[in-house]
Design a binder for these strands. Structure first.
Lengths: 211, 211
DNA sequence: AGCATTACTTACACGCAAGTAAGTGTCAAC
DNA sequence: GTTGACACTTACTTGCGTGTAAGTAATGCT
């Protein structure tokens, strides 16, 4: 081959960054090409259409995530240490760039406008996270059904990224997440759970209109 | 006037729904017009450009939110009851349609691609929420700096909407949120806070590439 | 009766972005 | 030294979506 600067690989990397900032809707072949100093058609050469490219991005990010989670697994630490390492994974996202969200989270926001294949990929990405967290939470003996709690942790972290990026303050992520360990207690007792379920609510729920 | 079916108002309502499902990027004059059985130009007649329309949507939603929060304020209940009513506000969103997110949350995801005026509006929307929650949390004597905790609550709720919509299961929202009261303890003590801050992390943080 | 206002419509201009077709140049193997 | 794969480019088509200009029809006001 004449010149292969690893364009295909650089393309996925760039595409991921763009998606983290601007989402799938904000991913344009034109700007990718411009950034890499190639033509738009060259992008099509490697990834015939946007879905191909985006799926590749997710696939690679899933793979990377799996590796990171595996590294946490092998460190064989107490549950709350593992969770803190997990939190740090999210923090690394905003450390890489304060305009970024988790690729999965960004796509989750756009999920209704996504082509079906991508939608499925996004769900799988979240499955990966939720099942891993659930597995870890199962590590201490204190619970048997960690599924809801795992979903809560993942949701809270995605929300934390969303909010901290909105304000453009990476450190606000810490402020949000620091207290999150409370809902993943290992040594500390869980406070007595209240009745829960929605109490008297001042909301009339209309199907449509009337806001 | 000849025929005024309240088109302007129906337009904002519809636009909000679309934005909740598909975001600002998925909001198109063409489909709005088609849905209401008018022409695209008629939409421009009321809202000359998309930014006008979207800002109007946010403004009305802010106003609605303010009213809801005021209603919770006057009920003069204990903090955790107020918080539960607040949670129910979010639940009402997915009750209205399981493809919807909070308008503010959706726009927060798109924030980097949004025209600046809109971006500012979105921040104000979140300010409204965070300051209200902080004020309520201040209601019990147990804390003095509820800002971080307030942001955490808001972030967690937005994340909960994101995740529950992703899976298309409205009831998963409950599963996620039910345990959220733990981080808003009023009578129950907060478990002893651990050192926190990121512990040994198996992550090399590169600025770019290499994923 | 005449005029302005409101609530629209038809028609058009324009830019952007995805995708495709058909090259061109270079290296590597046979 | 031809053949073929690879890494692209130029050029073009097509469709979508915003925005605007210039009507038109009905109503209300003076």
């Amino acid at each position: 081959m004449k010149n292969d600067n690893g364009t295909a690989a650089r393309l996925v990397g760039l595409a991921r960054e763009v998606m983290q900032v601007s989402g799938y809707a904000g991913l344009h072949y034109g700007s990718l090409a411009k950034t890499l100093g190639i033509t738009r058609a060259a992008v099509h050469h490697y990834y015939p259409n946007k879905v191909d490219l985006a799926r590749r991005v997710i696939a690679e990010y899933c793979e990377w995530t799996r590796q990171q989670l595996a590294e946490i697994d092998v460190m064989d630490a107490p549950v709350d240490d593992k969770m803190r390492s997990y939190f740090a994974l999210y923090r690394s996202i905003i450390e890489e760039g304060d305009e970024r969200l988790c690729p999965g989270g960004m796509l989750a926001a756009e999920v209704m406008t996504l082509p079906p294949e991508l939608r499925a990929d996004v769900r799988k990405f979240f499955d990966l996270h939720v099942t891993w967290v659930a597995k870890v939470l199962l590590g201490d003996g204190s619970r048997t059904e960690p599924a809801g709690e795992a979903a809560r942790v993942v949701a809270a972290l995605q929300g934390a990224l969303l909010v901290s990026r909105l304000y453009g303050r990476p450190d606000s992520f810490d402020a949000i997440v620091d207290g999150l360990m409370i809902i993943v207690p290992t040594t500390a007792p869980i406070p007595t759970k209240r009745p829960a379920r929605k109490a008297s609510v001042p909301t009339k729920t209309r199907k449509n209109e009337g806001r």
